[in-house]
Design a protein around this nucleic acid. Structure first.
Lengths: 133, 133
DNA sequence: CATAAAGGTTCTAGCTAGGGGAAGGTCAAG
DNA sequence: CTTGACCTTCCCCTAGCTAGAACCTTTATG
């Protein structure tokens, strides 16, 4: 099947699929006319990539996961290790983002937001001390 | 003061300060030897940028905030609008990331993680249906 | 049969927000 | 005088694509 078809079935754009081929994630066969030719198994792998990316795995992590996906002798422990590391990373990002939000929320709440120029947000961003979270 | 000094005082790297000048965020005076020369007021603005960035504002948002920072006739409502929009954006990211984490957490918990090849994580990433969060 | 639209191909360039490092000028100390 | 720390500009690199140009192939229609 052509790339457009594979794109539709996998949920990736054709551009993205070509990019993945470019960086060596997945190589496609070529038909006589030079068009890329995808099998159902290729589509499964593309879908796998789409899901992995949407779950926050980096392309390099996807490369590892894809190789484990294709390896019928894999140890599930290897997969779990990657997923756990990603989970830890996401938890860290969540904590960071939560702190950010709390700080920003305090600033926003403390600003009256009218035509006067005095503004606790500006002061908080410019002041000497970190605004209390 | 030289850029290294301004960098230290503002918490930004010299590279970053030059980059900000490059994109027109903040222009510095030049000393006779061609070195950039920063005043304390420049340092305050750099600090302002550092804090704004660290709170998640994009460089373009920082540009607006900095112009409001310098504008003594600003309306605090303008500042609050930008901050509120950013807050909404952060909340959205938080929700997204939380959903991601929950999905990933379910997958990780369901995987025994040993030497056997069968792996619910791989199945979850490759399967036809979205894994339940 | 001609042609136009809808695909496909390769290539380059751009996005964010800087980091790394080269090649070279300048300044203070020993 | 030289060394080392600092400064300058310059260009390339990162992630993960997206957009567009220039061109080729297939398919549908008059």
């Amino acid at each position: 099947m052509n790339i457009g078809n594979a794109a539709e079935k996998s949920g990736l754009s054709a551009k993205t699929i070509r990019y993945y081929e470019d960086i060596g994630l997945l190589q496609a066969d070529r038909a006589g006319n030079g068009y890329r030719d995808y099998s159902m198994s290729d589509v499964h792998r593309l879908r796998f990539l789409q899901r992995s990316r949407s779950l926050g795995f980096s392309v390099e992590e996807c490369r590892q996961l894809l190789s484990l996906y294709s390896d019928k002798d894999r140890e599930s422990a290897s997969v779990k290790a990657i997923a756990k590391a990603k989970l830890t990373e996401i938890d860290r990002k969540l904590a960071e983002l939560t702190e950010l939000r709390d700080t920003l929320r305090v600033l926003v709440r403390s600003c009256h937001g009218d035509k006067r120029p005095d503004c606790p947000i500006i002061e908080g961003l410019g002041g000497k001390d970190r605004v209390a979270a």
